[in-house]
Each structure stands twice: as C-alpha cells, then as structure tokens.
Nucleic acid binder design. Structure first.
Length: 260
DNA sequence: ATGGTAGTAGAACTA
C-alpha cells in the first residue's frame, strides 16, 4: 500500500498540449494520467515524448476528433478499448480500460451531444446506458475507478449559472439522469468527497472572456470510485494552474490521490 | 454570455 496519484485531463490535442503536459507533470508527478481528446491517430501519438518523461502509454485515436489514452509510470494490464458490446459506434476512441495496482480504470470521453434536439444527444444518452451495461457485464464486485470527460455537470453546484443551462446537452435533466443511472451502479463522487463546496470547475470555455479569472466554468471532468476504492481516497482537487498557462487546453486536470 | 476561441485542417466541423 502506497500513495497513488492519478488525474484526468481533456487535453484538446495531445500534440498541441505537450509543453503544458511537460511542465504540469514535472510540477505535479502522477502514477497514472487519463487523457481525452488526444486528436491524433495512433501513428502520430507522441509516445516518445512521454517515454522521455518516464511514462508509458496506451492510446487509440482518430484524425481530428476524439481519442483517449492512459499514460502511466507503472505497467498496465488487461488494456481494452471501446464498450465491447458490438454496437456502433463502438467507442474505440472514447473508452480505454485497464487494470493497475489491483484496481480497474475506465477512462471515458462521453459524446458531447451538440443539441438536445439532435440525434447526437440520443447517442450521448445511449452511451451512458451502454456504460452501465458494461459495468454490469464485466465489473461486478470489482474495485473500479471511472474517470474522464463525462460531458455532464451533475448538479447546480457544478456550473456558474444553472438557470440558463437547463436545455444544454451537458446539463439537461435527461443527461443528468442518464449519468446518475451509471453512478447508481455503485460509484462515489471522488472529487465531492473531498471538496463539498460549489464553484469548482474543470472546463472554462475559450469563448468566454476571462472565464478562468471570473470563474465561469463547468465541472464536467470526474473521478468516480466504487466505495472500497473511495475509502482509499486521500485527496482530490482541480488544478487550475495549467488553464492559465500559455496555449492551454479549455479543460484543466482533476487529480485524485489514493492509498493503493 | 444566443457571441465569442481553439484545434485540425487547409473548408468546415467539433467543442
């Protein structure tokens, strides 16, 4: 049993974010880092850069969109991509799973959904349902850490102005219910366990002027753990610093510290 | 923030 530090970070292009990642990993060393929106086909994933930093990585990407990775200091076992249910799209570039230190990690980039009136929103709701099916099918009784950009702000405490976001795909009641249904499989909000107060956000829209300084954002990146894992959780926090650096992602990392 | 910016592209899409 020793300290295990992990994080989830939507990088909005892993290649564009290498300077930020280098600096952040130096200042905030991790055992395991879950990335989303890598936006690189596998041949273009900057594996050598991570190896230079002392990490290995598993990844699956596509041109321009999506893409997930798990970057780690220690070996990863049972690596798998996608939801594994035979449905299309299969989520190959949105879901990466592995086992590490006796725990099961599920790193997801949930579809954003565009607009509640569009088919994309149905795909998003179905994606949550398929995840629930995956947990039912493959993870019964196991210690699981579900993390990533879930594109959902679960409660009014997780956005700046809840009243004008009721029809937003990341805040709409149907999306929140779909998220809660996965949560009810058996997850504890690992961030909220340590940070109960409202007003902490992991996403700050590039298009909102001074979003970070004015704290206008969303908490849509999450660390969720099964109860026995949550018991091992020692701390969780959102690190706002990388969002203020040169050429930032629009997201900033969520960090979880465990005794594993 | 019913507009805006960033990324990948090399025009228009996704977020």
């Amino acid at each position: 049993m020793s300290e295990f530090r992990m994080a989830s970070f939507n990088v909005n292009s892993v290649r564009s974010r290498l300077p930020v990642l280098r600096r952040w990993l130096e200042e905030c060393p991790l055992d395991l880092l879950c990335l989303q929106e890598t936006k690189a086909v596998d041949a273009d994933f900057p594996l050598a850069d991570f190896e230079t930093m002392g990490y290995r990585a598993v990844y699956r990407g596509e041109k321009s969109y999506n893409g997930v990775a798990i970057v780690s200091r220690i070996p990863l076992e049972d690596v798998a991509f996608g939801l594994g249910d035979g449905e299309t799209p299969d989520g190959e570039t949105r879901v990466v799973r592995c086992r590490c230190r006796g725990a099961y990690f599920v790193n997801t980039y949930i579809p954003q959904g565009k607009e509640i009136t569009l088919p994309d929103y149905g795909v998003k709701l179905r994606f949550f349902a398929r995840l629930r099916e995956l947990f039912d099918r493959e993870y019964s009784g196991k210690p699981v850490l579900w993390t990533g950009d879930l594109n959902i702000a679960p409660t009014d405490a997780d956005v700046t102005h809840p009243e004008n976001k009721r029809t937003h795909v990341c805040f709409h009641e149907d999306a929140q219910a779909a998220y809660r249904d996965v949560l009810s499989w058996g997850f504890v909000d690992g961030f909220r366990k340590h940070r109960p107060d409202p007003g902490e956000f992991s996403f700050f829209d590039y298009r909102v002027k001074g979003a970070l300084e004015r704290n206008i954002g969303w908490r849509i990146d999450h660390i969720l753990a099964t109860p026995e894992l949550a018991e091992c959780s020692r701390d969780a926090f959102i690190d706002r610093e990388p969002r203020a650096w040169e050429r930032p992602s629009d997201h900033t990392p969520v960090v979880g510290v465990f005794d594993l």
